[in-house]
Amino acid sequence: MKRLLFLLLLAAIGFSACKEEPVPIPDFSSGERRVLIEELTGIQCAVCPKGTRELLRLQDIFGKDSLIIVSIHAASGFTSPISNPPSQNNFTTAQALELGTLLGSADGFPAAAINRKQVDPGSPSLMVTPFTSWAGIIGAEFQKSYGLDLLLENHYEPATRQLDMKITLGANNALPGENRLTILITQDSIVDPQKDGTEIVPAYIHRHVMRGIVTATAGDPIPEALNKGTVVEKNYSFTLPADWVAEHCSVVAYVHHGPVPDREVLQAIEKHVVE
């Protein structure tokens, strides 16, 4: 009996105050900060479309202008072409592989980097799994702001297929450290086979496919100090290859830290090549 009383006493002490208030659940609306998602995928990756669908669902919630998606076909071991029906496109370019390596390997798929935030401090990779955790991390990213505005203007000349891009950075706060600018081109709605679950979908619609990188893959360093009130303008030109559909292409530009102290994306912007 003494033993039972002792145990009950211990239990009462150890597990007292079991009643607690629920954690408030936020309702989201798009903030000023935009969030960049770099999704690691591959046409042989059977579970990756599940992640893509989750991102599209989140884009509907957070807003298409606010949640910017880039699909990088560099998922290790899942990028070889499909033979039946045969793949018509090769999304796994040298630049895609280079960017995938820069972001780090994934513990599994679907996997994505969210504003290049280091979610697991113990891992060198920026890739976040499982995909069910993305919504929460994206929500937290929308609640932060570095006070950096980006303006992107595109001019596309169909005859020469030359694309001129003007990026204007406006800092509302001091942003010390090494800042870099990365610009890349995505193409949306490319129809080509994709493994999806247990099936190969012949006419799968590939979304936000990373086609090319205009700057260096690791980003071009911004030599100007970004102090409060600083405005910096950058100009780039790029010729779209013939097999890219300009009407479905977008320019994605983002400012991010250099490798030290982290690689976090401060702000991002996306604009169609042809409005």
Binding site: P22, V23, F28, G136, I137
Partner: peptide
């Protein structure tokens, strides 16, 4: 972790949300 879960639930339709508490026994 609790905030991340709460943010995730914030993206769910209302009928699919649930009360979130720190402790499980």
């Amino acid at each position: 972790t609790a905030d991340r879960i709460a943010n995730t639930l914030g993206t769910y339709p209302l009928p699919e949300r649930f009360d979130l508490k720190y402790n499980t026994y």
